[in-house]
Design a binder for these strands. Structure first.
Lengths: 218, 218
DNA sequence: ATGTGTGAAACTGTTCACAGCA
DNA sequence: TGCTGTGAACAGTTTCACACAT
């Protein structure tokens, strides 16, 4: 079993394998109790060698000549990805994007429970969003403590993003999913994942402007 | 001036430099008419050497001893990123996420004009969203032609994503920004950028579960 | 003195190719 | 035979370090 640190690109692909395996299991007759690296390659768009290399990081699960056992592999991925627990999430920013994220089914389905919605703007306080109510930023530290919130989803305008980050980090949250188009400064022990819609869009415009052939990205 | 193809990671960073430079220009007194690679490094979170390597791909813009001229560099980035033209965009999927994207100011500010909203669901047809009205997928090819749409933003559930893609590609659109949690198959001449919210969230959960120290990603 | 541009080295991730197991 | 797991080759990026321009 691998004990070296897994490459980050590999970690990014694990959720994709997991999704594909769920699909196989769901549509799963007897025929799909095992998968080969080449079938996984076909379903994900990666190469077979890469699939084997990635899965080898999880330990030896494949049987030579037969492939990987679907349920076993899926369970292992689920465990590694922390998908068997429920994560409590704070949503910071109750604007357009924030409210859309709150309603996004994909999160709930994967065990992410939005346990509090916060906004700086006093006009929004008390307004109902989904089953929750928008609260002032000042309440965040207490709610984080009470609800054991581990992840914050940041969906505020760029101008207020760093301020909000200070509050989030100050409250002890160590994982931030940032949708604000801004480069945030966080301490080394805080994990930051940026999802920058404008960058992705500009990347696409760049590809269309400068590149004839495609080069899949993301 | 560089004539080799620019590395994709470099291309992803260009919008970030552009944003930082805009900030400098905006808050810009005389003092900020030039930037050094080390200041840009500080503002972006990259290393100074990387900044110089990236900017060298745009041609020789820096003056040794003095740094880079902010307005000149910003204009060059704007041109390379195709930001001085307006891009017409089709929004496919008028659900929660789609409507939030329609209202997202970041897109409009950067010259992305949503020229049509489409959805498979007949119940949504004719409903107003922003200044537009939801149309059936069948109208997409005609609107793409009439409005010279180059980019499609795909915000439909995973189950319908491939079908929608066929329509989009069939209509001649060669750039897709995909928000559906699905691996799309597209011809080689179509540029696909995936923004998968569930993958980013699971990535964060993985980092929190398995990694003590942070390693900035995105 | 300061800071760019860039060869060369270091590093990281992917692909190749095949030994070995079922 | 079919397919995994992996050493070795390869490819692509980033960092180092410094010659050189201002």
């Amino acid at each position: 079993m691998r004990r070296e640190r897994m490459p980050l690109p590999t970690a990014r692909r694990l959720p994709i394998y997991h999704r594909v395996l769920r699909g196989l299991e769901w549509s799963g007759q007897a025929a799909s109790s095992r998968v080969s690296s080449s079938l996984l390659a076909q379903l994900t768009g990666f190469t077979a060698a890469l699939v084997r290399r990635d899965l080898a990081h999880l330990g030896s699960f494949g049987t030579p000549g037969a492939g990987y056992a679907v349920p076993e592999l899926r369970r292992r991925l689920q465990a590694v990805l922390g998908l068997d627990r429920t994560w409590s999430v704070a949503l910071v920013g109750a604007g357009n994007l924030g409210r859309a994220l709150l309603g996004y089914r994909g999160f709930a389905e994967r065990g992410y429970r939005i346990a509090g919605v916060f906004d700086r703007d006093a006009a929004s306080h008390g307004r109902p969003v989904g089953e929750l109510v928008v609260r002032p930023m000042e309440d965040l530290p207490r709610v984080v403590r009470e609800q054991r919130i581990a992840i914050a989803v940041l969906a505020v305008p760029a101008a207020g993003a760093q301020d909000a980050t200070e509050v989030i980090v100050g409250a002890g949250v160590r994982g931030i999913l940032n949708f604000a188009p801004a480069r945030l400064r966080v301490p080394a022990d805080v994990h930051l994942v940026n999802v920058d819609l404008t960058i992705e869009m500009e990347m696409l415009a760049y590809l269309l402007t400068n590149m004839g052939q495609s080069a899949a990205s993301g």
